[in-house]
Amino acid sequence: MTDATARPTPQESRPMNPILTIARRELAEGIRNRWVVSTTVVLAALACAIAALGAAPTGATATAALDVVVVGLASLTIFLVPLIALLLSHNAITREAERGTLLLLLSHPLSRAQVVLGKYLGQLVILALATVVGFGFAAGFVVLRNGAEGWQAFAFMTLASVALGAVFLALGMLASATVQESSTAAGIAIGLWLLFVALYDMALLAVLVARGGHAVPGWVMDLALLLNPTDAYRLLTLGEGASAMLSGMGGVYDNSSLTPGVLAGALLIWCIVPLAGAMVLFSRRNL
């Protein structure tokens, strides 16, 4: 009797990609801890509330209901999605260290960079699922009542919202790789959220007011907008089309040399740089 039946096939003998293994582990933990369900429910509830309020007054206007909802949801995204992303990722590394599972995890044949990237991908799947499903409920509600006109802008806003969440996931991973304790990482995460969501624009407005009406060079203003991922997101989603008129961002976009490609590239860089920094810091970290 031969042992041909016991011999593993090439597909069975091929080891699973370590990054995907870590990502699946992170996703399973997110499902087990109700992160997927809770974030989806929160986003869906708030998105549907905004959709119900925002779509109501559009019956006698030429503006599509979904265009109105895009403005409201984009404003919600700027405040809520970064916070959810930072809550997801700020203790990705420190949690493992405090539970004593980090050494066990690193005993497997994988690098520290693969651990960071795998955790990041798993959390990105959680955030993307919550955002797409949550906003999808709102879109379905509006489409059933007012039709599907403006769905392209809504789909683009949803995709950009996932990209903004990816930026703050990377920033949270960087915070987690920088410090030793989850409480410290949480403090950094709160500081990052306050800086980019509230304080940065307040400081920028104060500088503009302090100039006493003197014009700011265009390239300086463009650079200031690119240095804040939430501003890049706001200009990307609300700078063109009907949303620009409703949000008031059309004037800023028209006086800027920034294009959608540049703004999308800025969000990509905002993802890559903190994530690369997290990989470097974690590789040099003493356990």
Rank of each mutant, 00 (worst) to 15 (best):
S38Y: 15
S111P: 14
E98W: 08
L204C: 01
S243I: 04
L194I: 06
A242K: 09
A23C: 10
I188F: 13
L117C: 05
L281Q: 02
S182I: 11
A244E: 10
L164D: 02
R14G: 04
T63L: 08
A189L: 01
G165S: 04
L171P: 10
T58W: 13
T63I: 11
L106W: 12
V125N: 06
A4Y: 13
M221G: 14
L104R: 09
Q11G: 03
A56M: 11
A47L: 04
L105P: 01
S243T: 14
S38E: 13
A28P: 03
D222H: 02
H108A: 15
D3T: 14
L117A: 13
V42E: 00
V41T: 07
G251R: 14
A47H: 13
Q180W: 09
L267F: 07
I84Q: 01
G118E: 05
G261E: 00
I126F: 07
P18T: 08
L102Q: 06
V37C: 06
P217C: 05
A224G: 12
F282Q: 00
D67V: 07
M157F: 15
L169K: 08
A177D: 08
A206C: 01
I188G: 02
L121A: 12
S75E: 06
S161Q: 05
M221R: 13
V68H: 11
A153M: 08
A52G: 15
L102H: 14
A92K: 00
Q180K: 15
A163C: 00
L103T: 11
N228T: 08
P229W: 03
T77V: 10
T237Y: 03
L194M: 03
D254C: 10
E12N: 05
Y120N: 02
A56P: 04
L204N: 09
A160H: 11
L238C: 04
G218L: 00
L192R: 12
A278L: 07
A130R: 11
L204P: 07
S13G: 08
L205E: 10
M279P: 09
M1V: 15
L226W: 09
M16S: 15
V42R: 06
N17W: 13
Y200N: 05
T63E: 03
A92S: 12
N228G: 05
K119Y: 07
Y253G: 03
A276T: 08
P82F: 06
A49E: 11
L169W: 01
A74D: 06
T230Q: 03
P260V: 07
Y200E: 10
V133A: 03
L169T: 08
S89W: 00
G248K: 11
R7I: 02
R32E: 15
D254Y: 06
Y233N: 02
L287A: 09
S182R: 13
V197L: 00
P82D: 01
V115L: 13
S243K: 09
N33V: 07
G136K: 04
S38P: 14
E98L: 05
S161C: 01
M157V: 06
A185M: 13
L129Y: 10
L124C: 08
M1T: 14
V125P: 02
L246G: 09
H90F: 14
H214S: 14
G100T: 04
H90E: 02
T39Q: 13
A56G: 11
C271L: 09
L205F: 08
